[in-house]
Amino acid sequence: MKKKKSARKMIITAIPYVLLTAMLAISLIPLVSMLGTSFRSRATLLTTRTIFPQEWSLEFYRTVLSDVRILTYFKNSFVNSLITCIVTVFCSVLGGYALSRFGRKVKGINIVVVFLLMLQMFPTVQMIIPLYITFQNMGLINTPYVLLACYPAFTLPMNMWMMRSFIDSVPYEMEEAGRIDGCNRFQTITRIAVPVSKPGIASSAILAFNHCWNEFLLAMILIKKDNYRTMPVGLNNYMQENSADWGSIMAAATLMLIPVLLFLNVLQKNIVGGLTVGSVKG
């Protein structure tokens, strides 16, 4: 009798693990198949019927990495994302601090908060058409600067929102103590608020990086020259040109995924607070 009960209990405790594992495994099928295919060789690409190949090969990675265009796209994307990330963090720490600390006392700040949230909800297509015309008149289309000018405007709303909630959690008393010890206004930001909310800053920086790394529509419309193209658009073109070469496509996709997956652990820990205020967009 007792044994039966404990067996039943074991089954019950196993249920969530089994269901979760099954669920997550199914959802990862396309990704696993991508990974498996990227390690096939050209000879076995079409004949392999299993997920992972019998003989692993780096042939497709060699093809992709020896393509100068892909390397250029990679470099462009990386530089763009990094610069945007730095600009975004700078502006959003200052802005988020203002929203957090002055929200209830200074007129207009709460309108700003609502405005930021609304911006996230408006269709990008609507403003992209006039933006294209403006940049065309300024002669900035097909220059490396045009995306750098645009991206912070798209990462900032969500980053400022997140930063606001992170700075909310820094106690006022800490800043006051800093003031008494002789910090001026800006030093209380750089020496107290920023170091204390470091994990938050890290995850919002990652989100900004990630946003630029993934961004497609703006990059497609504003850049038409191969040497300034970023990864998403470049990859899409590459994939359309080599539409039957699934091996190289999957290898390139895997490479593009690497930086994203590296950040996953940091995000997993810090992002949930930002998620629940409804500001983070995938």
């Binding site: 593009m256 995924l257 997956l261």
Partner: peptide, 15 residues
């Protein structure tokens, strides 16, 4: 669980 959510759009489409 988070992986599908962070995968870049191009990669999602092509996989």
């Amino acid at each position: 669980l988070m992986i599908p959510w962070v995968v870049p759009g191009v990669v999602t489409a092509y996989i």
